[in-house]
Amino acid sequence: MGERIRLQVARYRPEQESEATFDEYEVPCPKDWVVLDGLNHIKDRIDGTLAYRWSCRMGICGSCGMTVNGEPKLTCATFLADYAPGPVRVEPLRNFPVIRDLVVDIGDFMRKLVKIKPWIVRQAEKPLADGEYLQTPQELEEFKQYSMCINCMLCYAACPIYGLDPKFLGPAAIALAQRYNLDNRDDGAGARMATLSEHEGIWGCTFVGECTQVCPKHVDPAGAIQRYKLSAAVESMKSFFLPRGA
């Protein structure tokens, strides 16, 4: 363990201070260590009071998102050695209120997620005797990309529109709405439309495109939103020009 690197970690202790400050720690930097390993080292060996979230340490749970040198990153998938010789600045995810140190409140996203009904909505269930709902690989391909979202919220942290207007539904929620809208087993597109077509829904997006750049799962939320805008525009054109019920 020869190499070491300095981590500048944002601290916010609400019972003591009203602004964030930075604490600096030196941690080992073997080539297979990620930023999260550095934080765990701090917590275990140097300063047990540091608060942050993590769980799977393998890019699945989506809980370890933080701002690393100004960029939203999954800290379990961001290697310390890539920032050598350092220092590395670790801050909480942007655009969310900070509860303590690196922990942000994600309630806003959770409430928005429920609004878009992220589950398969059926008008009528078919009888059990008819067997399962089948899907071809092509039908799966239509939405598979959007289903890879791990709710890490890096896209919200990268989105200046969400930062400026927290009412905006935001990238992941819209991508997840599309995940179900484009699923051939789902009948919920109409029910989701009300939320999506609000001013704070898809039309809030001005296509900065950074959500897609930072997404660790290649979900392409910006693409999902533009795609939905296009189909919503086509739909409204149709209802304008075609007779009712066509």
Partner: peptide, 13 residues
């Protein structure tokens, strides 16, 4: 919790 609100700079762009 006493949240810390992170401000967006006017020059974010």
């Amino acid at each position: 919790p006493r949240w810390l609100r992170q401000r967006i700079s006017t020059y974010w762009w």
